[in-house]
Design a protein around this nucleic acid. Structure first.
Length: 282
DNA sequence: AGTTACTCCTGCGGGC
DNA sequence: TGCCCGCAGGAGTAAC
């Protein structure tokens, strides 16, 4: 599941390999992959043709290629999206292919089709240029301009569970289910607690933990990475071994030894230590 | 207005 | 063996 570290790994790969190159052909193999491009597949391919990629950007889990005319190709990997250069190992999940001037192919592969491409204009939000569809997304914890105290103020007003807020990309971006559980474990907070009931100091700890765990994951290349190949479904992801909470149901807590538990929450799994992260009284 | 539930999608694994 | 169900989950949208 690509969250901030995995998306950043992809962005860096793209920055290195496609910046400065011109797109010479585009083919949309599956219309769903461009469903968020309002003007449709034909418009997207026509507008990408003969444009030059001038740079890359990312906020949270959104990434984009700037095209030099105040527009950008916005990419969201969704659950299983991959941006691949060169050979595509599983062509039946190929959704979009773009040919670059040097003969290489940039492919968007996406098994579950939650991700996609769209073209959008850049807009200035809070002093930073982002594509219009990303304007509502909050800064992520690795953004140099991330306002931790500002987020804490927002969280203190939320009458909603803290994990739900961690996953709300308009509050703080880049965090998905895995890194939410990891952050909560590091800060010793149960995700079912009300955000408004968590002290400012604890919220600061939590946001610092989120930044730290995602930095750690990024240092290990995300979950699994080889050049531009990101294996989103890979079992043996590099960072998997470093996970302290996610997927560890029934195993001993690495901090106190208590048996880790799993609860259903927001229709997804939450892994936590019942001793370090006691559930709130109902 | 703030918060929550629903929906999209595919492949895999468990149970019968 | 084969079928069905549940699960994985990011994020927009509908509904409370």
């Amino acid at each position: 599941m690509p969250e901030l570290p995995e998306v950043e790994v992809v962005r860096r790969g793209l920055a290195e390999h496609v910046t400065g190159k011109t797109i010479t052909a585009v083919r949309v193999h599956h219309p769903r992959a461009v469903r968020r491009h309002e003007a449709g597949p034909a418009d997207l391919t026509a507008r990408l043709l003969d444009t030059t990629i001038t740079g890359t950007g990312r906020r949270g889990k959104y990434l984009w290629l700037t095209l030099g005319d105040q527009s950008a190709l916005v990419v969201h990997l969704g659950m299983s999206g991959q941006m691949l250069l060169g050979e595509v190992p599983n062509a039946n999940h190929l959704r979009i292919a773009a040919l670059l001037e040097d003969g290489t192919t940039l492919s968007f592969v996406d098994q579950r089709t939650f991700g996609g491409w769209m073209l959008a204009d850049l807009v200035t939000v809070d002093g930073t240029d982002v594509p219009a569809p990303v304007a509502h997304i909050a800064r992520d914890p690795l953004d140099p301009l991330f306002d931790r105290d500002g987020v804490i103020t927002v969280l203190r007003r939320k009458h909603s569970e803290i994990k739900r807020q961690l996953l709300d990309q308009t509050v703080v971006s880049g965090i998905g289910n895995i890194y939410a559980d990891e952050s909560l474990w590091r800060a010793k907070i149960n995700g079912a607690r009300l955000a408004s009931g968590v002290s400012k100091a604890k919220l600061a700890e939590l946001l610092d933990a989120a930044a730290a765990v995602m930095t750690d994951a990024l240092g290990q290349g995300g979950t699994s990475f080889d050049s531009l190949y990101v294996n989103v479904n890979g079992e043996s992801g590099y960072f998997d071994r470093s996970l302290d909470a996610y997927g560890r149901e029934g195993e001993p807590c690495r901090r106190c030894g208590a048996i880790m538990r799993r609860d259903k929450f927001m229709n997804r799994s939450s892994f936590y230590c019942p001793r370090c992260q006691p559930r709130p009284r109902v």
